[in-house]
Design a binder for these strands. Structure first.
Length: 261
DNA sequence: ATGGCGCATGGAATGCGA
């Protein structure tokens, strides 16, 4: 089973890159963020033609998340249960026997700002829901998306000046997700030094590899031992008019092949 | 040097992202 996540920064602009990427990579599940379009504008037909079903939650201009899957997503839920939020940042669905949670976490702007408080409240609500409800009900769970947090020092290039995305409260919130029983699948495997998933459009950041690793695929305990590989795919970041984010791809030996005794 | 680029809205200039 192959599960991927990609912040496309406008599904309208990136649709053809997305379709090409699906053709080339054929994931079983792809979590998308920053659709930046309303549900009525979702390119349902094009994605269906590519061989994928979709569950999505969008809005005008900002945010928007979707789960694409080669088999129909079931039991779709929208938002964090119990957390009132106008912003379309979370969608969850079951694909075969795996619960997929796809999130576009708030940016937070700057520590001390109202947007930062919203980010921490959003993260707190997410951890509570995962720990108290989602994980107990769905032991086979994947949390994937644009977390807008670089969890460790190795996940940010040394020239990153700002506090946002790397601040202690954000990193503590990331650890709280891990403590729910999730594992950062990327760090189960050896990776190139300075592996990132986002590079600013400005300053030739991609060329200089001035990036951050802020897109993640976390897996529950039951899935951890099935992980076989996880990597950043920098290929689409090299195209004309790219998203500023690159996809992350996780390969799982799932369902486990069991010997009958 | 706090800009730079790209996207959306709206139809120019501004807000926002990370």
């Amino acid at each position: 089973m192959k599960i991927a996540t990609w912040n496309v920064n406008s599904l309208k602009v990136r649709l053809h890159q997305l379709l090409d990427w699906l053709d080339a990579n054929r994931p079983d599940v792809l979590c998308l963020q920053e659709l930046k379009l309303e549900d009525k504008a979702f390119p349902e037909a094009e994605i269906r033609t590519a061989g994928y079903y979709a569950a999505y939650s969008g809005q005008k201009t900002y945010n928007g998340v979707a789960i694409l899957a080669s088999s129909p997503p079931e039991d779709v839920t929208y938002g964090i249960p119990g957390f009132s939020d106008e912003q379309k940042r979370l969608i969850a669905a079951t694909v075969t026997d795996v619960r997929i949670v796809c999130g576009y976490f708030p940016n937070g702007q700057a520590p001390g700002s109202g947007k930062f408080a919203y980010k921490l409240a959003w993260l707190d609500a997410l951890a509570r829901w995962l720990g108290m409800e989602a994980l107990p009900i769905h032991p086979n769970l994947v949390l994937a998306g644009d977390f807008n947090i670089a969890p460790e020092a190795a996940d940010a290039h040394s020239g990153w000046k700002g506090e946002i995305l790397v601040s202690p409260p954000e990193r503590a919130a990331f650890r709280a997700l891990i403590e729910c029983g999730l594992t950062d699948s990327f760090r189960l495997f050896g990776q190139p030094e300075q592996s990132f998933s986002w590079w600013d459009y400005r300053m030739g950041a991609f060329r200089r590899n001035f990036g951050l690793r802020i897109d993640h695929i976390l897996v529950s305990q039951a899935l951890r031992d099935a992980c076989r590989a996880c990597a950043v795919d920098k290929t689409p970041r090299k195209l004309e008019r790219p998203s500023d984010h690159a996809p992350i791809v996780l390969e799982l030996d799932w369902p486990h092949k069991r010997l009958k005794i």
